[in-house]
Write a protein that binds this DNA or RNA. Structure first.
Lengths: 231, 231
DNA sequence: GCATATTTGTCCGTATGTATA
DNA sequence: CTATACATACGGACAAATATG
């Protein structure tokens, strides 16, 4: 009945997190911990999050847990089933498709806006790629993944809208629900050189070529992740 | 002490909404009603939403109210102050500026995507403008406002991303927090002909001119609303 | 600045309804 | 079909923080 593995994970992190004695509300902090567990893959898609279980692991009340669920639900990281509680969201192919339909216009627009963005911000993209290359050589795929995300997040931030940046973060967290299903080496290795090319083209000011390269990147990534979700 | 006006509004709507016996959770439904009250301007920015007050008007428990607050908080319609509860959000000039920094790239991208969108969807924009013209003649400013929003929502939907559409809806609801501060006639009258021009240019396939017109629209709207917020 | 009242933050017990074995 | 487990929702309690006189 009770999922021993899930329970163990929650015990660890919940207890260690020092949930009380903070500035924000307990519900926010519970949501933060759960979000981290979800996007890191420790709580894989489909995992049922039972209220009582979380009450004992986090040592907070059920009300607080439920408030945290509401927050995560709005971020699309968990799904509600009335009278059946919440579970970590499982993306289907359509979800992945729509996420890329979301990323494409945003990132393409970011390329256009790069013309007006501070040069330092554009150059910083190259630095992120270089860090990713080092991490890949060291075989640290988790770090490569983080840096890949940081690259695209940074790109979108060139638009200069806090709301779009925040929206992109949420969509990105959502996309990570699918990452657990794909081999990290498969996922990132081919994309580092692509990111490098995009960054270099932007620094050179060739936005049209950068847009072309980005489109190719996104198409390949979507295909790969959709294949992973299909399984 | 207790705000009689706010109370009266909540009494009315809360009781009339038939909150129980529905498919979704009570918290969702409470949030729906509150959202409507907020974006319609019945609960103007700054209004304190006291838990006990809502408990009596909606006849639900405090826990449920708090869950609804979490939902609205994630939509940026209310703000939390620890140990001081929630209040209807009050936009400042920076907020309005960022909202337009958000709208601009999205709507410009929508114009580009209109090339690939189904023709019927593009033509439908003209229909929305015509409805707005009728409503303006009839002096129904509330309806004009609704139709203006529908126009831009419809435009963004040409991108074809459910997530972007949903995001735009949230941003739009947020923007309405500022509408209460501007005279509706001032706000909408000059924009109907602009919308018409944009729609006609899109139907004609002249996307560059439509983009120019849209940019002018957004600049004017931002200026007007920022002036309203400044007061 | 202090004492008091109010309100939030959080926890708990319980009753009801729903889904699943 | 019954039993069980669980989520949903309510209401009461109390400490802590904040607002008020």
């Amino acid at each position: 009945m009770s999922d021993g593995v899930t329970e163990a994970i929650l015990q660890q992190v919940g207890a260690a997190a020092g949930l009380r004695f903070d500035r924000s509300s307990t519900a926010e902090r519970v949501a933060d911990v759960l979000r981290e567990l979800i996007i890191s893959g420790d709580l894989p898609p489909g995992t049922a999050l039972r209220e009582q279980q979380l009450v004992t692991s986090f040592e907070v009340s059920r009300n607080t847990i439920r408030e945290a669920f509401r927050l995560l639900g709005r971020e699309r990281l968990v799904v509600y089933h009335l009278h059946r509680g919440v579970a970590v969201r499982r993306l289907n192919e359509h979800d992945v498709h729509d996420i890329y339909r979301t990323r494409r216009p945003l990132e393409l627009m970011a390329i256009e806006y790069s013309a007006d963005a501070p040069r330092a911000a554009v150059v910083a993209l190259v630095g992120l790629v270089e860090q990713a290359e080092s991490a890949a050589e060291a075989g640290d795929w988790k770090q490569v993944g983080t840096l890949n995300i940081a690259f695209h997040q940074h790109l979108v931030e060139l638009i200069g809208s806090e709301r779009i940046s925040a929206f992109f973060r949420v969509v990105d967290a959502e996309l990570r629900l699918a990452f657990a299903l794909v081999e990290p080496a498969d996922l990132y290795t081919p994309f580092i050189p692509r990111n490098r090319k995009i960054a270099e083209l932007l620094v050179a000011g060739d936005r049209a070529a950068a847009a072309k390269e980005l489109t190719a990147y996104l198409e390949e990534a979507e295909r790969l992740i959709r294949a992973g979700v299909r399984v």
